[in-house]
Design a binder for these strands. Sequence first.
DNA 1: CGAAAGCTTTGATGGTCATCAATGTATCAG
DNA 2: CTGATACATTGATGACCATCAAAGCTTTCG
Lengths: 110, 110
Amino acid sequence: MYADTMSVPRSVPLGTRPLTENHAGELAAVFGALSDPVRLRLFDLVRRAGSDGICSCDLVEPLDRSQPTISHHLKVLREAGLVESRKEGTWVWYSVTADAMDIITRFVGR
Amino acid sequence: MYADTMSVPRSVPLGTRPLTENHAGELAAVFGALSDPVRLRLFDLVRRAGSDGICSCDLVEPLDRSQPTISHHLKVLREAGLVESRKEGTWVWYSVTADAMDIITRFVGR
DNA sequence: CGAAAGCTTTGATGGTCATCAATGTATCAG
DNA sequence: CTGATACATTGATGACCATCAAAGCTTTCG
């Protein structure tokens, strides 16, 4: 009693196969990193900073969260592969990774 | 003691202003809907079905979750504005919304 | 060395979420 | 009306998560 039994063969898929369980898991992790308002704004600020990056110390005040909380969120973004960090003295500079947007763009497809 | 005080004015922003708190919240809701592997695969299946849509009854078995769980996830996708549903007899057909991908595409921006 | 600044880690807490079984609702067939 | 099918809602449970204060680590500076 599936609706399938009453319809013509489905239209041609988008380009590839349906999402595998593994691929879905990886993609979900990326979207999960972007599913928090604070992290989204963090990522936005880092992205605007361009290739130079932006110092972590400049991300606490504009987001109105404690410094450990910001540190936590940056870690999530980093582990999702969306940003990368480079240490310089006591500072840590964050910048977006090369393929940060590629992952999402590929999902959106054309 | 912000790094800002020791650097030249930041490079020019991407195109618009930094994400507002409200806009970040809305975007985060969309990404949140896509932050679960089951929902991602659900959305993928619905998207492949094209404009005809796909019957909810055909989404339970391939995802290996209980019917109430699938129903719950479809509701989340619907409330995020990613899919829409149309009832036909005892069946419910799901299809992607017109601007589902637009939201994400705009975020990726260039 | 010793103090201070930038950042991370730990522990605790309140909140949200994915999941299922059970139940409820609506629609169709006989 | 009765039974069956498709789907939604409810309630319970275990897992995860955002947040902060406190404490730890590392680097710089005097």
